[in-house]
């Protein structure tokens, strides 16, 4: 077993796949740089992310696996899980060594693992499209703070750009400490100088709100209560759909969290 150490980036992972082909290494243990401790008995290859090499593997994945399978490959990567990095690596090797079409062989454990993780990431992406709550600030900026389980901002960017084309907005990932900002033309990645560890409640203090913001927050909270049918109360289902970890980012649930 050869150990490949990569930098944790997407192009680093693709470069690792490229290198393993050049060196004809089939059995590879892929580790992310920060977790790696030198093992004196195993051969170690340090992978340096290389744009051109990554590009070739990326193209190859499309040729052999198809567009959709490649999209799943990227989604699964955004889970940031060490276990999935290994599956992605083995998946790529498997797909390249088989005739075209084998990216759909769910009987293979790597194909299945990648597809299942992609599904989970997709679900989190969808949740963010649902659970993001913008607040309107005094200068007309709509901003939202989130903390998704997976790094899904790259996946939701297009949705928000298409939908809110006529308003300036920012979506900030508290956990990963970066955000995306739409300026009516383009979306940029941004980092902020306000203390990222501040909770949404605290950060509200530093940003002046639109004068109507409080009214609409109240109206939404009250609407949320009025549209509930008490005779059908089903908290288990409610929590299954809206897990508690998201409540602090949802205006309509934040009061329940304080109880």
């Amino acid at each position: 077993m050869v150990i490949y150490v990569f930098d944790g980036t997407f192009s680093g992972l693709l470069t690792a796949v490229f290198e393993s082909f050049g060196r004809k290494h089939r059995q590879v243990k892929l580790v992310c740089g920060e977790h790696f401790e030198q093992d004196m008995f195993s051969e170690t290859v340090r992978v340096t992310a290389d744009k051109a090499k990554a590009e070739r593997v990326w193209e190859g994945l499309k040729t052999k696996g198809g567009k959709d399978a490649r999209k799943q490959f990227y989604s699964a990567f955004l889970s940031e899980s060490a276990e999935i990095f290994q599956h992605l690596f083995d998946y790529a090797l498997y797909v390249f060594n088989q005739p075209a079409g084998y990216a759909n062989n769910f009987g293979n454990s790597h194909v299945l693992a990648v597809s299942q993780m992609a599904q989970k990431v997709h679900r989190e992406k969808h949740r963010m499209e649902a659970f993001i709550r913008f607040q309107k600030s005094g200068n007309g900026l709509f901003f939202a703070v989130v903390s998704p389980d997976y790094n899904v901002l790259p996946l939701i960017l297009k949705h928000f750009k298409d939908r809110y084309a006529d308003q300036v907005w920012v979506i900030y990932d508290e956990r990963r400490k970066y955000g995306i900002h739409y300026d009516l033309h383009h979306v940029h990645e941004v980092t902020f100088d306000f203390k990222p560890e501040a909770s949404p409640e605290q950060s509200q203090v530093t940003i002046a709100m639109d004068e109507k913001e409080e009214l609409y927050t109240t109206l939404w909270k009250e609407y949320f209560k009025s549209t509930n049918i008490k005779e059908r109360k089903n908290m288990k289902l409610h929590i299954q759909h809206v897990p508690k970890r998201y409540w602090r980012y949802l205006v309509e649930k934040e009061d329940d969290l304080r109880v």
Binding site: H126, F131, R232, K233, L237
Partner: peptide, 19 residues
């Protein structure tokens, strides 16, 4: 460049009855 689009649909929240 107006506002809004529709697609596969999104449930933005769920009330306590699970709807």
């Amino acid at each position: 460049k107006g506002i809004g689009d529709t697609g596969s649909g999104i449930c933005h929240s769920y009330t306590e009855d699970g709807r």
